[in-house]
Amino acid sequence: VVGIEKDFAIIDVGLKTEGRVSVKEFGVDESGKPTLKVGDTVEVFLERVENAMGEAVISRDKARREEAWTRLEGVYEKNEPVMGTIVGRVKGGFTVDLGGASAFLPGSQVDIRPVRDVGPLMGKEQPFAILKMDRPRGNIVVSRRAILEEARAEQRTELVSQLQEGEVREGVVKNITDYGAFVDLGGI
């Protein structure tokens, strides 16, 4: 960063000319002042070497998106969960922010059972499993349900290992049929 003029940071990217990026793209502190200072080293995405005004065309948001995609591809290959936040509703599901990259969360993948009100889940950081990634199309599909089912399976395995024949346990009656009753023992 070689200078800050009004709402723009002037950034030297090693070309004949500098580029300008809105300081809002770099974030602001709690008082609303930009966190960027002259002399800071930042990562930006070089879109074009020169525009009509002779400036380099650069973007911090695109650099952040590229960083996120590279990070997420590594996570996807290792089949690990990724932290994200549900930020909006779209047709058939929700938009999830994965730290710079947007992903699609299908309505069927929000929870194990259908959810009527997603309000309490909105804006909270939580783990998601990446189901599909397509970089050329810019498409990521995630699931919260896969993470919940995995945790539930672990609970089930643990509970089954603790159960002893003839022991007395507390449970909740879930359903009564002609041939008996279904009792929830906490996951089973």
Rank of each mutant, 00 (worst) to 15 (best):
R144H: 14
V87P: 00
G171E: 01
I130R: 01
M53W: 05
D184F: 07
F26S: 10
G92L: 02
K33R: 12
V168D: 01
V1I: 15
I188Q: 04
V2T: 15
I10E: 14
E25I: 14
I4N: 03
L72T: 13
G74K: 14
A52P: 02
S59L: 10
T35P: 00
F128R: 00
A146W: 02
A129Y: 04
K124H: 10
G123F: 11
I140S: 06
D61G: 06
E47S: 11
T85E: 10
Q109P: 07
L36H: 02
T95I: 12
Q109I: 12
A129F: 12
G93V: 09
E150F: 08
T70G: 04
Q162K: 13
P106T: 13
A103R: 03
I147Q: 02
V173S: 02
S161E: 07
G84N: 03
G107Q: 09
N139C: 03
F45W: 08
F26Y: 10
K16E: 12
R64A: 13
D12E: 13
D29K: 10
Y76Q: 04
V23A: 02
G138K: 08
E154R: 13
K174D: 03
K91Q: 10
V42M: 07
V90T: 12
L72A: 10
K91G: 09
R144T: 12
I130W: 01
N51D: 15
D184W: 05
G99A: 07
G54M: 05
L159K: 11
K6L: 11
I130V: 15
K91V: 11
S102R: 11
N79Q: 13
E18H: 14
V118F: 06
R89F: 07
V1Y: 00
S108T: 15
S108W: 07
V141T: 15
V75K: 00
Q155I: 12
T95E: 05
G54Y: 03
A153E: 09
K91I: 08
Y76T: 08
M133Q: 07
I11A: 06
G3E: 11
R135S: 08
V168K: 05
E25C: 12
D12P: 06
R71W: 09
N79T: 11
